[in-house]
């Protein structure tokens, strides 16, 4: 039976690993390669790297990190951050990424999803959706590191992204990022029920129950950063807790 995935998300800024709160207030949390080794040793199900530094020089640093990690961590690696062209995707795959995560470029040019899926296969293309909750309780998709409001509804956008060939959807409540206040299970449930591709939820994971709640809502994976960086919860403890709670994760 297919297992639900525990996915550490590593945010990169100029070659260092950082943590943010609501996508801002960067805090240095260490060396990404060393951290990847720890997650590999703890048998994380997958690693996601998101590079939030935007310049071309920093792309070279990202390449080096992906190359180094993929040379010693024999597990699935997803990489995203500023990927805008088919050539960007090809280059990062060549360095050792297995999947790429696209966000802003997909919103600005939805045809990019189709082109990328056709060229590299749907299962290689992950569309990440950052969203914030409005005061009236509705949601809106944001791009450019959650600074640019798009007017799009996240559920409708997830459906369109999947229709265009995204092989996986990551749904993130940007306004909960780093708060450890808990995932937005209502929103996650809507996305899971609306698309036929796997959904990964992130943004706000603060307790082991948050993993359980999201898995019970039907997500394929839960992405988390803070809980592994700033609490004493490890992948090993998380897995054990979820196994005991009857969740279908790797033993």
């Amino acid at each position: 039976m297919l297992k639900q995935r525990i996915i550490p998300m590593l945010l990169l800024y100029k070659g260092r690993m950082v943590k943010t709160v609501q996508f801002a207030e960067y805090r240095d949390v260490g060396n990404p390669v060393t951290t990847a080794r720890v997650f590999q040793a703890q048998r994380a199900d997958e690693l996601l790297f998101l590079d939030i530094s935007a310049s071309i020089e920093d792309r070279g640093i990202l390449f080096d990190i992906v190359k180094e990690v993929s040379g010693e961590c024999f597990m699935p690696l997803g990489v995203g951050g500023g990927l805008r062209t088919l050539e960007d995707i090809r280059a990062i795959l060549e360095k050792g990424a297995d999947k790429v995560i696209i966000n802003t470029a997909a919103v600005e040019h939805p045809g990019f999803i189709e082109d990328a899926a056709r060229r590299f296969g749907s299962s290689t293309i992950v569309v990440s959706i950052d969203t914030k909750k409005r005061n009236d309780g509705t949601y809106e998709v944001y791009t450019r590191r959650a600074t640019n409001a798009t007017g799009l509804d996240p559920v409708a956008w997830a459906v369109e992204a999947a229709r265009r060939g995204a092989g996986e959807i990551i749904i993130t409540r940007a306004d909960l990022d780093g708060t450890m206040q808990g995932l937005d299970i209502g929103l996650i449930t809507k996305v899971v029920q609306s698309v036929n591709v796997p959904v990964v939820a992130s943004g706000g994971v603060g307790s082991l129950d948050d993993f359980r709640n999201a898995f019970q809502a039907g997500v394929s994976g839960v992405g988390a950063g803070s809980i592994f960086h700033f609490t004493d919860q490890s992948i090993v403890k998380t897995r054990k807790y979820l196994c005991n709670a009857g969740i279908n994760v790797r033993p």
């Binding site: 039976m1 297919l2 639900q4 299962s123 092989g167 591709v197 959904v199 790797r250």
Partner: peptide, 8 residues
């Protein structure tokens, strides 16, 4: 869901 992604 399809693709079939993950550990089985």
């Amino acid at each position: 869901s399809v693709p079939h992604v993950g550990w089985n």
